Simulated assay, not measured.
Amino acid sequence: MSCFFPIADYRKCHQPLFYTNNLNQYAVLCDFDGTISEKDVTDTLLNQFGNAKCALLEQQWQEGIIGSQECMRQQIANMQASQPELDRVLAQIRIDPAFSEFISFAQSRNLNVHIVSDGLDYAIQSILKRYNLDFLPIFANRLLHNQQRSWKLDFPYANDHCLKASGNCKCQHRRKLTGFQKIFYVGDGTSDFCVADKVDMVFAKDKLIDFCQQQRIAYYPIKNFGDVTDILPELLKAPAENSCLTPV
């Protein structure tokens, strides 16, 4: 029987959440796949290393037959690749060119930035490492490998009561962020829906824009993190000074 081991660097992944002090009054939660990364990392790996069952599982998830946690658990179990093969695909995935500038801005303003993703911890860390950004706290599903060609997922942030049945319940992370004056969220897809109405402002792309419109959640539509960097300075000012910016 194969033994599976986590392969992400736990000194950098799954760190305790930062808490507010006199300098850190604001937090930004960021999705990864399709938000920070230019394309969905898990889909890319499954297209490369998955089998026919992965597509069937995706269809069952889209039809609401299974939740995203169960879908991903089975999909990753149906993936066959060595770690070097996986690394070669991850090395080709790029992030939003404006993300590094956004992080520099966040550091200059003492903003806490956390990555909360229903994706794969090792994949996220591996990609961010190429950009010297792997110091960011990453909260994602735990990727396990058997040192051969098989993979498994562990879900350290699952919540039995998660409305989206996600592997990583993003609402749970939001609840742990206590004491901040404002909490912002940047995302693009269905795993971001449940947390969108629990933050002070949403920066939305793609499906998340449609959801915010349908649910009448205030948001700013963005194309990339350059838009976030442009808008945030006004939102960090006193409320009386924010009249020049109106969310959708």
Rank of each mutant, 00 (worst) to 15 (best):
V186R: 06
F180Y: 15
Q214M: 11
I183L: 14
T178R: 14
L177G: 12
Q181I: 01
C194L: 01
G167C: 05
K207H: 14
Q172M: 12
D160F: 04
Q214C: 04
V199W: 07
M201I: 14
T178Q: 15
C194N: 01
A218V: 01
T178C: 06
Q172C: 10
Q181W: 00
F155M: 02
Q215G: 02
F193R: 03
Q214H: 12
K207S: 13
H161N: 10
K198H: 12
D160E: 09
R174T: 08
G167I: 07
N159T: 00
N159H: 02
A165F: 12
S166M: 14
H161T: 11
G187T: 05
D206E: 11
A218Y: 04
V195I: 15
K170N: 11
G189P: 03
K164L: 15
Q214G: 05
I209P: 03
R174A: 14
V195E: 10
K164H: 14
Q181F: 01
F155D: 03
K164V: 06
S166C: 15
T178E: 15
N168W: 11
C194G: 02
N168Q: 13
F184V: 10
K198V: 00
G187Y: 09
K205W: 09
I183S: 03
I209Q: 11
C194S: 05
K205F: 10
A165C: 14
P156E: 01
Q213W: 02
A158R: 04
D206L: 04
A158K: 03
F184C: 07
I183R: 03
T190E: 11
K205V: 03
K176M: 13
R174M: 14
A218P: 00
A196C: 03
F180K: 04
S191G: 02
G167H: 10
K176W: 07
F184R: 07
R175D: 15
N159G: 02
M201C: 11
G187V: 07
V195K: 03
Y185N: 08
R175K: 15
V186P: 04
C194F: 02
L208C: 07
G179C: 09
Q213T: 09
F180A: 11
I183F: 04
N168L: 14
I217E: 06
H161A: 12
D206K: 14
L163T: 13
N168T: 15
K198R: 14
G167Y: 09
I217C: 04
K164P: 00
L208G: 05
F184D: 07
F180L: 06
C212I: 07
C212Q: 08
R175S: 14
L208R: 06
F203Y: 14
L208K: 04
C171L: 15
K182T: 07
K207M: 11
K170R: 13
T190S: 13
I209L: 10
I209C: 13
M201S: 06
C194W: 01
K164Y: 09
D200Q: 08
R174P: 05
R174V: 13
G189N: 12
G187L: 08
C162D: 09
V186L: 07
L208Q: 03
A158Y: 03
F193S: 02
Q215L: 01
A196T: 06
C169Y: 12
A196W: 05
D206R: 13
F211D: 03
D188N: 15
V186M: 11
D160R: 03
L177V: 09
S166R: 03
D197L: 00
C194V: 02
V199G: 06
Q214F: 05
Y185V: 04
V199Y: 08
Y157I: 02
